[in-house]
Amino acid sequence: MDRRELADFLRSRRERISPADVGLPAGPRRRTPGLRREEVAQLAFISTEYCTRLEQARGPRPSREVLAGLARALRLSDAERDHLHHLAGAPPLPPTGPSREVRQSILDLLQRLPRAAAIVTSASFEVLAWNGLAAALMEDFSALPRRDRNLVRRVFLGPHTRGQRLYGVSDADAFARTSAQRLRAAAARYPDDPDVAELVGELLAGSEEFVRLWESHDVSAEPALRKTLQHPLVGPVTVNCDALAITDRDQQVVIYTADPGSPSEEALALLSVTGTQRMDLTR
């Protein structure tokens, strides 16, 4: 552990962040640039005394949990987070399962796509992030527990709302086939991840279709570039589907756009206004 370098690094990262960057009020009489130590401690879930000792090169070696909290509080990049671990004498461990942490820049990107529905999925098809139009087009993911945000679980095990698989998407059967193949590849990449093992076990126990696809041992499939979703309020919405790989985290940004001037573009525009409210319900 390099206490002096660690102290200097933590202080330099703290001083570059403004309170507004992390949703804190600026407040009066800020004599130092960036965040105060007590603010970093609050965001990292550690004591102010411990944070102060680390910055004064007097602290004991921080645990991996503390390092994760500091990296989150200081909004470190992947390279900076690895550097933090090395300075603390705790080299970063290789991931045992699909990453569930979405970079802030990707979260910002989703919100800058007001005319497109966009989600971020993990290697095991968990929806990790979404924008408002995606929630309006598919489902309000924020209202679901984590396990129910998994698209491969949903396509095979439901719920199938109004008898339709996966929001009534036109390529539901093809998606089921593709997701089974990609999940097999993910299970090989993360053989020690309990969440992936539990998901596969649940699908094998609950879906004969998944068993058949799993036993084929196929691990590749052609992506669907265009699909139609059956929406209960605006009817069929046909979208182009483009997936952008985030290779360092084994994630995908999936973006759904409608052809300019099409009825589906008008439908998306309406959904961007109505959001997730159900205007089709009678009182």
Rank of each mutant, 00 (worst) to 15 (best):
D140K: 04
V127T: 14
V152H: 06
R72V: 00
N131T: 03
P98M: 10
G97L: 10
S170E: 11
R100G: 06
S122P: 11
L109A: 13
A117Q: 12
I119W: 05
H83Y: 15
R147G: 01
A129M: 08
R81C: 11
D108C: 02
H85Q: 08
A172C: 09
P114V: 04
L70H: 05
A134L: 08
N150R: 03
E139S: 05
E55Y: 02
A129I: 11
R177G: 04
A116C: 06
A73E: 05
L144G: 04
H86Y: 12
R177T: 14
Q104H: 08
R112D: 14
R58Q: 15
R165S: 13
A180K: 10
L54N: 08
R61F: 00
R154G: 03
L110R: 10
L87N: 08
T121S: 12
S170V: 01
L157F: 11
P114D: 09
Y167V: 05
A90H: 08
Q164C: 04
R182Y: 12
V127E: 09
A116L: 00
S122N: 06
R75H: 10
L74A: 05
S99F: 11
L74Q: 09
L107C: 11
G69V: 06
A174G: 14
A117D: 13
A143N: 03
R154V: 06
L70T: 02
L137G: 03
D140A: 07
P98D: 12
H86I: 09
L67M: 08
S77T: 15
H85K: 11
T178D: 06
R103M: 10
A176R: 14
D171N: 15
L151G: 07
A136H: 03
H85M: 06
D173Y: 01
R100Y: 13
